[in-house]
Design a protein around this nucleic acid. Structure first.
Ligand SMILES: [Mn+2]
Ligand SMILES: [Mn+2]
Ligand SMILES: [Zn+2]
Ligand SMILES: [Zn+2]
Lengths: 144, 144
DNA sequence: ATCTATGTAGGAATTACTCTTATTTACTTC
DNA sequence: GAAGTAAATAAGAGTAATTCCTACATAGAT
């Protein structure tokens, strides 16, 4: 991945490496601010802008993918060669689980083709309460 | 719908009525700013905050539903008794079309149940280029 | 007609993100 | 290994969507 950066003419800075390192654990979905917090542990002066700039660069290169969990902040995850997937997102604790199901496989493609719509990407996320939070949330009204 | 407001103890102000009126056309998905522009035609002094506050109130009452088209602004549509649906969203012109397909019908519910996840809501949107924009976008790289 | 809780306008504040600019640094070439 | 250069960085200002604050206005009850 480092080589990938270099071969594309990007410099391999320590900050950039550290940002990448945040994502080496599989199935993690961090926002820019979370990445910033992590990177700051090693580089206390790293600017939030550097984090944003690099997350964008890594996205452009296809190394990271963008997720939208509907909470106003963008999240990133490693664009592994692993299967395309979607997520279950807990409305209480914010944790996300991966879901090996993609609706595009099930949609009648005629539905889209007959409208001459050229599909580029799609989103599918399920929101609710995870097993840890389901009990606690059980007595509350959702969203109340 | 006006009665609904009154019976729930909300006052029926002219601004509130005008905001509701924006959504009487079916299949429209307006952002707060678009609603503000429309309402201002009749009430030139209406504040953006009033629009935001009322859109929220109408959402709480279940009269409007919230949509996220991934462009940083929230959109609203009438929560008609019509079928639950999703959208095709054009990345060029921003127009949206309705899609009568819901992935929840196709997902193996065991996939979710075995994790003890309690589903509250879900999102599913398809992004791409509509028939009017597909030609123009045909030569460009998506997102470039 | 009067009263008052609710709603309003307008501006300030907040949040996630981007831009500007001066300084530093990774990589190249010698 | 030193020097040159374009790219990357830190710091802070700027922006866009949304929310908060507060003094004033009014819908609807009495
Ligand atoms: Mn994932
Ligand atoms: Mn719709
Ligand atoms: Zn998918
Ligand atoms: Zn659905």
């Amino acid at each position: 991945m480092i080589d990938r950066l270099r071969s594309e003419g990007y410099r391999v800075t320590p900050q950039r490496q550290e940002i990448l390192r945040c994502f080496k654990a599989r199935g993690k979905h961090y926002s820019a601010e979370e990445v910033h917090r992590k990177v700051r542990r090693r580089f206390p002066n790293v600017s939030l802008d550097t984090v944003y700039r690099n997350l964008n660069t890594l996205k452009e290169l296809g190394i990271l993918e963008v997720l939208n969990f509907d909470d106003g902040k963008v999240r990133y995850e490693l664009a592994r060669e692993s299967a395309h997937h979607h997520h279950l997102i807990c409305l209480k604790c914010g944790e996300s689980q991966e879901l090996d199901f993609c609706p595009l496989k099930f949609i009648d493609s005629a539905l889209i083709r007959e409208r001459n719509f050229r599909v580029e990407r799609h989103s599918f996320e399920i929101y609710g309460y995870c097993s840890s939070c389901a009990g606690a949330a059980g007595n509350r009204r959702p969203g109340g």
